[in-house]
């Protein structure tokens, strides 16, 4: 790790801590009430879900429509664990262990589904993952241990803003490191050209299943956080529409851009809440805005690029030096400066 990268990490860590303390301060002073706090936790959960899907759809280039299925597996696995061991250990420890269990369970399901499904490409992969997602939902709906269609109750409400924030930050950090590693480059090469990647010796099946399993695991963690915040699970909330909502965040943010995902998750979680004043017209406006955003920015808000302070700094420096040059040549109006 060179100096420049270290500096970047330090800046980002400082910004994350600043945001965290800022939000904590606003909650302590009552500027953000319980309702706002709930929205922020949902944003964080959506960030985890969407950034994990971005690994598969954005970085690996595989369109999947069953992400809610993994979320459901993680939510139920972690909730069943914490229901069983409720009160026997400190809350934070219980939360962490149950989230890990949720993540591992979702990851295993991801591998089991991924091995046959990832042989398919493009739209067919989208359809088969849609099928698997729905099968998971129907199974949860009909077996006894999950509480079936009545839902699962009695889950301890132990997820808080603090835990959600740091878990989301950790997920983003892991995904960022992964996509900028040797494995990450192999994953990107599959997106760019699978046949060429295979020809130069990238083990495409291995990396596809690996990416899929990691994404499923993080979706499971997101599901676990959801379970421990809502404290009640209804299998029908993990249907096809939930998968679509997550995909919309990924595409709007920009496929292959983690920062884009964070921005889009924030916008798309706040938007329906901000439109509450329009009551019945709320979702109508939401869908209208979704169409308009896609029409004007088909590649997503950030495209495949990441936002970074360094590039922002470089760009402003570039603008400054350009302006200075023009000044030297005489006048900022550009009458002589432009070629």
């Amino acid at each position: 790790m060179n100096n420049k990268m270290l500096k970047n990490y330090a800046i980002n860590l400082a910004v994350v801590i600043l945001i965290f303390t800022g939000l904590m301060g606003m909650m302590a002073t009552g500027m953000l009430n319980k309702y706002h706090q709930g929205i922020i936790i949902f944003i964080l959960i959506n960030v985890i879900l969407a950034s994990s899907l971005n690994l598969v759809t954005g970085f690996l280039g595989q369109l999947t429509l069953g992400h809610a299925g993994f979320m459901a597996v993680g939510a139920y696995a972690s909730a069943l664990f914490s229901v069983a061991l409720k009160g026997q250990m400190p809350n934070l420890l219980l939360l962490i262990i149950s989230l890990i269990i949720g993540g591992i369970a979702a990851s295993i399901v991801g591998i089991v589904i991924g091995i046959p499904a990832l042989r398919l490409r493009g739209d067919y992969l989208a359809i088969i993952t849609l099928g698997f997602g729905e099968v998971i939902r129907v199974v949860i709906n009909n077996i006894k241990i999950t509480g079936g269609a009545q839902g699962l109750t009695g889950i301890p409400r132990i997820a808080s803003f603090q835990s959600a924030f740091w878990i989301a930050a950790l997920v983003i950090l892991v995904l960022y490191r992964l996509t900028h590693s040797k494995q990450g480059r192999a994953i990107l090469s599959i997106r760019e050209d699978e046949v060429a990647a295979e020809a130069v010796g990238v083990r495409t099946t291995y990396y596809k299943v690996l990416g899929f399993a990691i994404a499923a695991g993080f979706a499971g963690v997101g599901g676990g956080l959801y379970a421990h915040y809502i404290a009640f699970l209804d299998p029908n909330t993990f249907g096809f529409m939930r998968s679509v909502e997550i995909l919309v965040i990924v595409v709007l943010g920009g496929m292959g851009s983690l920062t884009g995902t964070i921005v889009a998750a924030t916008v798309l979680t706040i938007l329906p809440e901000a439109l509450r004043g329009f009551s019945d017209f709320r979702m109508l406006l939401y869908s209208f805005m979704l169409i308009v955003m896609m029409l004007f920015r088909p590649q997503g808000l950030f495209g495949t690029g990441e936002f970074s302070w360094q590039t922002l700094y470089d760009r402003t420096k570039l603008v400054h030096s350009a302006l200075r040059k023009r000044e030297k040549r005489g006048g900022i109006d550009g009458s002589t400066g432009s070629k």
């Binding site: 759809t57 595409v251 109508l284 169409i291 088909p298 590649q299």
Partner: peptide
């Protein structure tokens, strides 16, 4: 995929 998302948008709408 962008067209897919607008299709989903139209469906919601």
């Amino acid at each position: 995929i962008s067209v897919l998302i607008t299709a989903i948008g139209v469906s919601f709408f």
